[in-house]
């Protein structure tokens, strides 16, 4: 599994996360897809926009809503060589959050930089 896909083509994948974590299945599903995709050794980036920034809020505890606490998975992404996490500054700030509220290391970028990240990506998945 260390080899690249046949032909060795590496593309820039971008996973766009725009939903809050627990009200719908989107965020958890996105993580599953990212982890499965990680086996293919592509150039993977994750973007957190709008309510998607809430996915990264630290100290989530789902015990009392009886669902899996998948927020812990974000800390494991690094081991899957998924290391590029981008958070849109405007989304974070308009929700009253700062970098200190987040559970993992991310790069905070502004709308202009996010625009470029999207434009430069070759394959985009939306959640």
């Amino acid at each position: 599994m260390e080899e690249e896909l046949e032909g060795g083509v590496v593309k820039k994948f971008l996973y766009v996360n725009r939903r809050a974590p627990h009200g719908t299945i989107y965020a958890h599903e996105a993580l599953e897809v990212v982890l499965i995709g990680a086996a293919f050794d592509q150039d993977v980036s994750l973007a957190f926009i709008d309510d998607g920034v809430f996915q990264l809020k630290k100290e989530q505890d789902t015990a009392e809503i009886y669902t899996k606490n998948f927020s812990k998975i974000y800390s494991a992404l690094e081991m899957y060589d998924v290391e590029k996490l981008y958070v849109e500054k405007e989304s974070l700030e308009s929700r009253g959050l700062t970098e200190d509220d987040l559970s993992v290391d991310v790069k905070i970028i502004n709308s202009k930089e996010m625009k470029k990240l999207i434009t430069d990506s070759e394959v985009i998945f939306n959640f």
Partner: peptide, 15 residues
């Protein structure tokens, strides 16, 4: 317990 994932083999090996 820590990450809520059953790791794939290459990740397990590394860890």
């Amino acid at each position: 317990e820590e990450y809520q994932i059953a790791p794939a083999v290459r990740v397990l090996t590394k860890a």
